[in-house]
Every structure is written in structure tokens, then in C-alpha cells.
Amino acid sequence: MGGTVAVVDYGMGNLRSVVKAIEHVASGDRVVLAACAADIAAADRVVVPGQGAMPDCMRELESRGLRAAVVKAAAEKPFLGICVGLQLLFGHAEEGDVMGLDILPGRVPRFPSARMIAADGSRLKVPHMGWNEVHQRIAHPLWHDIADGARFYFVHSYCVVPDDAGLCAGTTHYGIPFTSAVARDNIFAVQFHPEKSARDGLQLLANFMRWTP
């Protein structure tokens, strides 16, 4: 009998595509949409997806009584953050001038407009939207069978800046180099959307389902 993976439902993000992608790679595991703290506490693994503005995400986590359960899960269980689910792990976010969960040391600034210049001198648009390469900075089980430089799908205007360079598990270049994946103990989180990233995205989710940190 497999375990249970909870996809945290706090009203933000394309949950259907995340759930379907995990179900596609889950082998004997049950995927549940967790809209209450008890469902998060009961799960063996936790995934926190997210789209939209950071202030809205933090407000919904609080109003639905999920904040403490997410913080506890991040301390104890295999934990995957996706997009805003990465950003909310850190401290101050420029978007809305709010604090994240402050689980990992660092901040979440907006892409600096003055440095959004492509190699040919043209202006880069923000948000960063589309496929881009992820360069692996550490050997990690979630990179298993994924080539260094593999392309994943991004949609974001803000990026995390960890205080501890050792947290960086992957980097991407868009005007500037930025951290696109982080890892610490039982936590792995990515700025891109694995559920929208074809074969390599599914491979990352499959690796997460097998991961025993």
C-alpha cells in the first residue's frame, strides 16, 4: 500500500494540473487535495503549488488555518514547493511588501528592470514567461534522470535570493542569473512549473514521489 501526498489547496494555483501530473507518476500512492490542516498533517508527503500574488497567497494560508500545518510539514516531511510555493518559504517579498513563512533565509525581489536585457541588446519582458534552462548546482535525488540544462516552463515576475548560497540547487538566466531551485534537508522547491514541463517535469515529480530524505 502506498502513502499519501497532499497537494495543499489554499485557493491559489492551477491545482488540477498539479494533481493530474502527480497522479500520472504516482505508483500506489494516493493524491489528495488538502484544504484543511488535518489533511496536511495526515499526509506522508506535501506539495505546495501556487500562482498569483504573494500577499494573496499568504492571506489565504492564514485565513484557511493552513499556515502552521505547512510550516510543520516543511520541518518534517518530504516537501515540494512550486512557483509561489518556493517564494513563500523565504522572508520579505517585494510584491505587496509582505513576509513569507521565513522558513529559509532570504528575500524575494522583483526582476530588476534595468538589467532585463537580452544578449542581442533587446529588452526582456517581465514576467519571465516560457521555457528556459535550469542548470543543476548540486547533485540531488530530484535531479535523477534529468539532464543539466534541461528546459522547464516558467511564469513569474519575482525570484528568490537566498542568504545562504548553499541552498541553491539550480540556476536559470533571464537578464540576470537567478536561483530557480532550492534544497535543504527534506525541502525541495522550484520556481518553474514541473506540471507544465513535459517529460522532465514529470520526471522531477516522479523523483519526489520516491524521495526518502
Score class of each variant (00 low, 15 high):
D44E: 14
V70T: 01
A74L: 11
L61D: 11
K72C: 05
M12S: 06
A38I: 01
I82Y: 00
D56R: 06
E23S: 10
R30A: 10
V32P: 11
D39K: 12
G81V: 07
G28V: 12
V70F: 05
D44N: 14
A75G: 14
V46D: 10
G13L: 04
G11V: 11
S27H: 15
L33P: 00
D39E: 14
E62H: 13
C83K: 03
L89D: 00
I82N: 01
G11W: 07
V48S: 02
A21K: 06
H24A: 15
G81D: 03
A73K: 03
A37Q: 12
S63R: 14
P49N: 07
F79L: 04
F90G: 02
A26G: 13
V84H: 03
A42D: 15
L33R: 11
E60N: 15
V31L: 14
A41F: 03
G28E: 10
R67K: 12
A74Y: 00
V18N: 02
G13W: 01
L80S: 12
V46H: 06
A69I: 13
P78L: 09
H24R: 15
D29A: 15
L61Q: 11
R16F: 12
L89H: 00
Q51E: 14
L88G: 01
R64L: 14
L80M: 12
E23T: 08
E76H: 07
A74I: 08
A35W: 04
G50Y: 06
M12N: 02
G28A: 08
A26K: 13
H24C: 09
A26C: 11
H24Q: 15
A53S: 05
L89N: 04
D44S: 14
M58Q: 12
A68L: 02
C36G: 05
G81C: 09
K72R: 12
R59A: 11
N14L: 06
E23W: 10
G11L: 05
G13E: 05
V46G: 02
R59H: 12
F90K: 03
E62N: 07
V47D: 01
A74Q: 03
G28K: 15
A21H: 06
A34V: 13
A41H: 00
H24I: 10
